[in-house]
Amino acid sequence: MLFSLIFLREKISTFQFIGLITSFIGVLIVLTKGNPLLVFHTQYNKGDAIMFLVMLSWTVYSLLVKKAKGIPSVTLVAMRAIVGSILMLPFLFLQPLQYEKVTSFGIIGIIYLGVFPAVDSFIFWNQGIKVLGAGKAGITMNLIPVFTAIIAVSLGQGLVISQIAGGLIVIIGMLLTSIKRNQEVSPQKV
């Protein structure tokens, strides 16, 4: 949302700004299990830096999708797939495929990943950006830690009350960002 304000000049209402801050606080509570100051005492690693770069590149992608108003979502996904395939091609030579280890289960998994997360999700994301704007669509990324906590619970890990509270705060923040400005009531309708 902040990058949309800076680069796309999208207007942010007071409720949207409050929602952004609220949602961010909720994410911090979920990630730190209720102790946001842990952010300053955590040992960060290369994976954290890579995730930060991934989020920045996702932000750039989302801003570019918003700018590409006249291009259909399917075309944008096809273009992304072509560029991504070309960029990944050199890595195939660094780690050649071992055909004897390929299983039918693995092939089904690759097809599933190729259709649903790699194509359908991008089409829906691109359409969401075009309808809602990059800022409003981007705030939904704050749900990632919430869904991660839900998946962790479904896999048998414990959940603390602060993570539940943080998840609710994230959702409240998202709801605040979706509040539209009150339209003035015209004198004729009174």
Rank of each mutant, 00 (worst) to 15 (best):
L89I: 08
G109T: 05
F93T: 10
K46R: 10
Y61P: 02
W58Q: 07
L113I: 05
M55T: 15
T148F: 02
I82C: 01
F116N: 02
P72S: 08
L175I: 13
I108K: 14
Y61T: 07
I171S: 07
Q163V: 05
L175D: 06
V153S: 06
V54H: 02
V60R: 12
P145V: 01
A68R: 11
I144F: 07
G135P: 13
T59Y: 05
L168Y: 08
Y44T: 00
S85I: 04
Y44R: 00
V65P: 06
E100S: 15
N45C: 00
I108E: 10
F52K: 01
M55R: 10
N142T: 04
Q43W: 04
G166K: 10
I144Y: 03
Y61Q: 09
G84M: 02
I129S: 11
F116S: 01
Y44A: 00
F91D: 06
L76G: 10
I129Y: 05
G167P: 05
G47Y: 00
S121F: 15
K130R: 10
G173H: 03
P117N: 07
L113G: 04
G84N: 04
E100W: 06
A134W: 07
F124I: 14
L132P: 04
Y99S: 12
L97A: 11
L155V: 11
L159T: 10
S162T: 15
I129W: 04
L87V: 14
P72F: 01
H41M: 06
G173E: 02
S57D: 05
P117D: 05
V74F: 12
V153E: 06
L168S: 13
L87H: 09
G158N: 15
T148D: 01
S62I: 07
K136Q: 12
S104M: 15
D48Y: 00
K67I: 13
V160E: 15
F93L: 13
F122S: 09
I71C: 07
L175F: 14
L143M: 08
S85D: 09
L143T: 05
A152F: 02
A68P: 01
P90F: 01
I82F: 06
M174G: 03
S104Q: 12
K66Y: 14
P145W: 06
G173A: 02
M79E: 14
V146S: 00
Y61K: 02
G156S: 11
D48K: 00
N45H: 05
I71F: 01
S62P: 06
V54I: 04
L63A: 09
I111D: 13
K66E: 14
I171Q: 09
V131M: 14
S154H: 10
V146D: 00
G156P: 13
S154E: 10
L175T: 09
G135S: 12
N126Q: 10
Q127D: 14
A149N: 01
K69A: 15
A134P: 05
G173N: 02
M79D: 12
Q157L: 13
K46E: 08
G84V: 04
N126G: 13
